[in-house]
Deep mutational scan, measured.
Amino acid sequence: QLNAMAHQIQEMFPQVPYHLVLQDLQLTRSVEITTDNILEGRIQVP
């Protein structure tokens, strides 16, 4: 299920590496919260 959620987020934010999306999802278990984390700059994109 997390993989499906990660792919959904990757479609919206292809610039964010998959492993970072998955790592955040493991903590949040939420597409909405992880999306917010990306938008708020809480996930550092190399």
Rank of each mutant, 00 (worst) to 15 (best):
E32F: 09
S30F: 03
I33T: 08
L20A: 07
S30T: 04
R42G: 03
E40G: 11
P17S: 06
Q1N: 14
V21T: 03
N37G: 03
V16T: 04
H7S: 11
D36V: 15
F13C: 05
N37S: 03
A6L: 08
Q44F: 14
Q23K: 11
T35V: 15
Q15D: 13
L27P: 00
Q15A: 10
N3F: 15
I33C: 08
Q44R: 13
P17A: 07
T28C: 05
Q26F: 14
I9P: 00
R42S: 04
E32N: 08
N3M: 15
A6R: 03
S30C: 07
Q15I: 06
H19A: 09
T34Y: 00
R42L: 07
L20G: 02
G41E: 04
Q1V: 13
T28M: 03
Q44G: 13
E40H: 14
V21C: 06
Q10S: 13
H19W: 15
A6H: 02
A4S: 09
I43P: 01
L20Q: 05
M12E: 06
R29Q: 13
L27G: 06
M5W: 15
T34M: 02
Y18M: 11
E11N: 11
H7E: 10
G41D: 04
T28F: 05
V21E: 02
A4M: 12
I33W: 08
A6N: 00
Y18I: 12
I38K: 01
H19Y: 13
M12Q: 10
T28L: 02
N37W: 03
R42D: 02
N37H: 08
T35E: 04
I43W: 06
Q44E: 09
L25A: 00
N37A: 03
Q44N: 10
L2P: 03
H19M: 09
T28K: 00
G41S: 05
H19K: 08
E40N: 15
R29S: 08
E32W: 09
H7V: 11
R42C: 06
P17E: 06
H19L: 10
D24W: 07
D36W: 15
F13D: 01
L25N: 00
Q23W: 11
M12W: 08
F13M: 03
Q8P: 01
Q23H: 11
V45H: 09
V31K: 09
N3D: 12
M5Q: 06
R29M: 13
L22Q: 04
L22N: 00
V45I: 13
Y18L: 11
L22T: 03
T28H: 05
L20I: 09
D24C: 09
L22G: 01
M12Y: 07
V21G: 00
L39W: 06
Q26A: 10
V16N: 02
P17I: 04
L27C: 11
L22R: 04
I43D: 00
N37E: 01
T34F: 01
V16F: 11
R42M: 06
I9T: 02
E11I: 14
T35G: 04
M12G: 04
I33K: 14
P17Q: 05
E11A: 14
T34V: 02
T34S: 04
E11Y: 12
T35Y: 07
N3K: 14
L2H: 04
R42I: 06
S30N: 08
I33M: 11
A4H: 10
Q44T: 11
